[in-house]
Design a protein around this nucleic acid. Sequence first.
DNA 1: TCGGCGGTATTATATTGTAATACTTCTTGT
DNA 2: ACAAGAAGTATTACAATATAATACCGCCGA
Lengths: 280, 280
Amino acid sequence: MPVTEAPRSARQTAPRGGERGAETLFVASLEKGFRVLEAFRNVAGDLGLTEIAERTGLDKSAAQRFTNTLQKLGYLEKDPSSRRYRPAVRLLDFSYTYLHQDRLAETAMARLIEASKVYGTTVNLCELIDTDVIYTVRIPHEKASFPATVPGRRMPAYCTSGGTAIMAFRPAAEAAAIVDASDRVPMTDDTIVERRAVMARITEARELGFGIGVGQAMPNEISIAAPVLNARGEAIAAVQIPVYMPNWTPAEARQKIAPLAMETARSISGILPPEAARSA
Amino acid sequence: MPVTEAPRSARQTAPRGGERGAETLFVASLEKGFRVLEAFRNVAGDLGLTEIAERTGLDKSAAQRFTNTLQKLGYLEKDPSSRRYRPAVRLLDFSYTYLHQDRLAETAMARLIEASKVYGTTVNLCELIDTDVIYTVRIPHEKASFPATVPGRRMPAYCTSGGTAIMAFRPAAEAAAIVDASDRVPMTDDTIVERRAVMARITEARELGFGIGVGQAMPNEISIAAPVLNARGEAIAAVQIPVYMPNWTPAEARQKIAPLAMETARSISGILPPEAARSA
DNA sequence: TCGGCGGTATTATATTGTAATACTTCTTGT
DNA sequence: ACAAGAAGTATTACAATATAATACCGCCGA
């Protein structure tokens, strides 16, 4: 995402603010700083200054300034010999900042751990963000691919059981909007991307009470997820449990894993307030 | 830490830069934005604008601008009725940004999972940051206090087995410096804070090959940690395993948990490059 | 040895962030 | 129920700060 070409407003030295409401309350520098951090999200190795500039759409000077600031603040680390940058441990502070105050994660934690012991499986909690699900709490048991074990990992909602389960228990219009807004590039050979088919999976999840995907996000993976509901009956998260073929068959998973996911999700549900703030 | 009173350089309209090197390359606005985020780190509930201003040392206007920007970017959530702010899920993106590129976490993950199965215990990986250890990878098995299960959690290095284990395998001067720089307020009734005693525990860890703390950071907790070493034999992290009394006794833990922690740590050691960049 | 690429440092300029202030909306105590 | 005050929101004039152009330096490969 090249981000909107900074409009760089027209009139010279003209006191802005008359135009529209509070545009003055937005600190553009802050956004640029975060753009630099985001540039590292889906990157294998370190990044040089030039690469950072390319990926963020900032010019070399800006990349220099923000990169330098981020390093001084301890969020980026600089290899003195290669002069390249990489994310620093300090970024994990934000993980704590979010999670320690999250009532959902707090109440879920014990239940998820219990659930993971039943069949010795991984158990995850995920929430919806834009068109993705983001895994917030992970209780890993088998090592799947490494990135798949990392908290904060995002996956497209439309092709994951977690996303399907959550969308199934949201207003239909919202679910449709998410699917439409999704960039539906197949993750595996079997990923279902066609709109009608995706919507059908959501409907199915609503009827079953859980979502299931076989090889949808990752080959050989059977993923099952059940929605966590608030007091109004709207999904605010999902308990997701992946198992792997050939150790498990889809039939076994439906029979054993689905009830476990649903029971776990149910035990977490309803404790939360009606609906967390939807920011403007 | 109230952060250094923004010096706000003297001379009016004086072109700065002549003074010293690259002060121009530091974007102060970015730091302020992060200050706002940091204000939420050790906070129970939501924060109002005024509270944010107080905690960050920014004035009301600044708090307004940064808070607003952060909300627009999706890192803060605003409760429309109370008008108070809270951290948003999106913060977990940084967790992924850091971890997915961390070779240490990657190689450790499988070993930690295995280790957690041996006695059905929690197993953590932690790294040193300033005077703290920060837990980077957590494989939870029993629910201890919730915050203690959250990745990104920090604890003072001087009174944790992880910190002790790491400092034991660092240059002595560095260890001493960390202990001296630590704000040694007791975490439990039994926390050892006296300099000589703390240093003795570090020496002991060097001799034993592992660090151990009984009720040091939390009552009833026995914490054992073994250092992960790089090719030079310097500690870069620790494998930490907590068990709880009365299920476990210190003697049992030394006999069973310590070898497990050491073996796990050893299996991860040496894979990493000599020393990750020490930023200037 | 040279060429060029990537990173670093410097500085004039005006755009952008700033902070003072007025306005509005909630909260609280009587 | 009302008033007083606290907390949040909006507006604007000002200049300090971020900007970006450019020059410099050092490294790598040819």
